[in-house]
Amino acid sequence: MTKPRVSASTSTAPSEWISLKEQLIQFAAIVGIAAFVAFTGITLIEWQKRESLPFCDYYASESCIPCPENARCSGKNMECLFGFTKHGKRCLRDQKIRKAIEAIDELIIEKFCGNYSLSLCKWTGPKQLTVFEIAQFVEHSELDKVLGIDSENFKLVKEEGQDAAIKRLNTRKNSQGLLELYCPIQLVEYYKPYRCRAWEWMLSYRNILLISCPLVFLAVVILSKAYLKQKISKRAEQLYIQVCQTLEAKSQNNMTGGETWVVASHLRDHLLTLNERKNGTVWYKVEQMVRRDSRIDQYPKLVKGESKVVWEWQGIMKRLIAK
Rank of each mutant, 00 (worst) to 15 (best):
Thr2Gln: 09
Pro4Asn: 09
Pro4Arg: 13
Ala8Tyr: 15
Ser11Ala: 12
Ser11Glu: 07
Ser11Arg: 05
Ala13Tyr: 15
Leu24Phe: 07
Leu24Val: 15
Ile25Asp: 14
Gln26Lys: 11
Phe27Lys: 10
Phe27Cys: 12
Ala29Met: 12
Val31Asn: 07
Ala34Gln: 06
Gly41Val: 06
Ile45Tyr: 12
Glu46Asp: 04
Gln48Gly: 15
Ser52Ala: 14
Phe55Ser: 02
Phe55Met: 01
Phe55Thr: 02
Tyr58Asp: 09
Ser61Ala: 02
Ser61Trp: 13
Ile65Trp: 01
Ala71Trp: 08
Arg72Thr: 14
Cys73Glu: 03
Asn77Phe: 05
Met78Val: 03
Phe82Leu: 04
Lys86Asn: 05
His87Tyr: 11
His87Leu: 10
Leu92Val: 12
Leu92Pro: 15
Arg93Tyr: 10
Gln95Asp: 08
Ile97Gln: 11
Glu102Arg: 08
Ile104Gln: 01
Phe112Leu: 00
Cys113Leu: 00
Asn115Asp: 10
Tyr116Thr: 05
Ser119Gln: 06
Ser119Phe: 06
Leu120Trp: 02
Cys121Gly: 05
Lys122Phe: 10
Lys122His: 13
Trp123Asn: 11
Thr124Leu: 03
Pro126Ile: 03
Val131Gln: 08
Gln136Arg: 13
Glu139Arg: 14
Glu142Ala: 07
Asp144Asn: 13
Val146Met: 08
Leu147Lys: 00
Leu147Arg: 00
Asp150Ala: 03
Asn153Gln: 11
Leu156Ala: 06
Leu156Arg: 15
Leu156Gly: 08
Lys158Phe: 01
Glu159Thr: 12
Glu160Tyr: 05
Gln162Ala: 01
Ala164Pro: 04
Ile166Lys: 01
Lys167Gln: 14
Asn174Asp: 03
Gln176Lys: 08
Leu179Phe: 03
Leu181Phe: 00
Cys183Ala: 04
Glu189Asn: 11
Glu189Ala: 08
Tyr190Met: 03
Tyr191Thr: 03
Pro193Lys: 02
Tyr194Arg: 13
Glu200Asn: 07
Leu203Gln: 14
Leu203Val: 06
Leu203Met: 10
Tyr205Ala: 06
Asn207Cys: 03
Ile208Asn: 14
Ile208Ala: 12
Leu210Phe: 01
Ile211Gln: 12
Leu215Met: 06
Val216Gly: 10
Val216Ser: 04
Leu218Ser: 10
Leu218Gln: 10
Leu223Ile: 10
Leu223Lys: 12
Ser224Trp: 06
Ser224Cys: 07
Ser224Thr: 05
Ser224Pro: 08
Ala226His: 14
Ala226Glu: 11
Ile232Lys: 12
Lys234Gln: 08
Arg235Ser: 02
Glu237Gly: 04
Gln238Lys: 10
Val243Ile: 05
Thr246Asp: 04
Glu248Ala: 13
Ser251Gly: 07
Asn253Val: 11
Asn254Phe: 11
Gly258Ala: 00
Gly258Lys: 01
Gly258Leu: 05
Glu259Gly: 04
Val262Asn: 00
Val263Pro: 00
Ser265Asp: 11
Arg268Glu: 12
Arg268Phe: 07
Thr273Trp: 12
Thr273Cys: 08
Arg277Asp: 01
Asn279Met: 13
Gly280Arg: 04
Thr281Ser: 08
Tyr284His: 09
Tyr284Ile: 14
Val286Thr: 06
Gln288Gly: 04
Gln288Leu: 11
Arg292Cys: 07
Arg295Cys: 09
Lys304Asp: 10
Glu306Trp: 06
Ser307Ile: 03
Lys308Tyr: 05
Trp313Thr: 04
Met317Cys: 14
Met317Gly: 08
Lys318Ser: 13
Arg319Ile: 10
Arg319Lys: 09
